[in-house]
Amino acid sequence: MSFTPFSSFLEASFFQTLAAKKLNEYKLDDSPKRVSAEYTWQQGRLVFDSDSFSDRDSHCKGVVECPGTLLNYNTIEEFKGADKKALLAEWGDKMLSGAIMNGSIFRNPEILNSFLLITFCDLKKYIFVYWMGVPCLNTKWDLQEVADEGNYTNLSTRIPALGESFVVIDPDDNVTPFSELEYVERSEDPTIAFLSPTSPENTPWTVRNICLMLHILGFKSATMILVGREKNRFLEWKRGDGELGAWTGWEKNSAGKLLPKQTNLGPLLNPLQLASQAV
């Protein structure tokens, strides 16, 4: 089974806000910052905009807010020199494993899509270098696809109607909040349904972290429903005793390489460049 990673999508307003924060607030502080990104149901892009830096106050149905960590380096040397593999492991552990073990995952299942964004801003030239990673373990989980038996109708309306993105379906087929998972006996076989970030032909990255969560929590088996707008998919997970594997998840660029991305916003943001463009 292969999994489709999230694609990063960083709007101009994100960079504009990052530049302003760096200049006025962070200055030389390169400590980790909590930020957020959003994905829309079935469109697997994690979108960053100016709201990434504050509490998002509008919650549109079908738009899922995901938490993450921003590490903004002060120099390009520090950005280049950072140990990328170690960073993924460190933050995968903190954001994911930590949340699973301290129970915060139950109240905030979007943590399963936690990301790391490392950046460097050249505020003279308005060039931004960045790289997004969505950490997960490259474990070979025991996952089988099973047929849709038509038992779960209307999940595509019921789940968004609740304003949720992840739910637990109880043995009586009631849609219950994801937080209920905390109270499910580990010997039982829970059914977790969530709004899939990808269209049905692809399997989202999120599945890998759901598997990790089930494993750490001590479940023996579970069913996942990847809810689409028209069509659902059903996966059955079974606990295995193989190795857990290593942390992975840095985004590949459109050439398929594991390299950071960069963008030149001089023409869009730099006041002096704007003046020279005006006629």
């Binding site: 999994f3 694609s7 060039i127 270098v129 840095w250 590949k252 001089g266």
Partner: peptide, 23 residues
């Protein structure tokens, strides 16, 4: 507009994560 060349960055090993689907 001096952009930083890709070659300036160290490409990471593709850490045999064959479960990841290429974009």
């Amino acid at each position: 507009i001096a952009e930083i060349a890709d070659s300036d960055f160290e490409e990471l090993d593709d850490d045999d994560d064959d479960a990841a689907e290429a974009p």
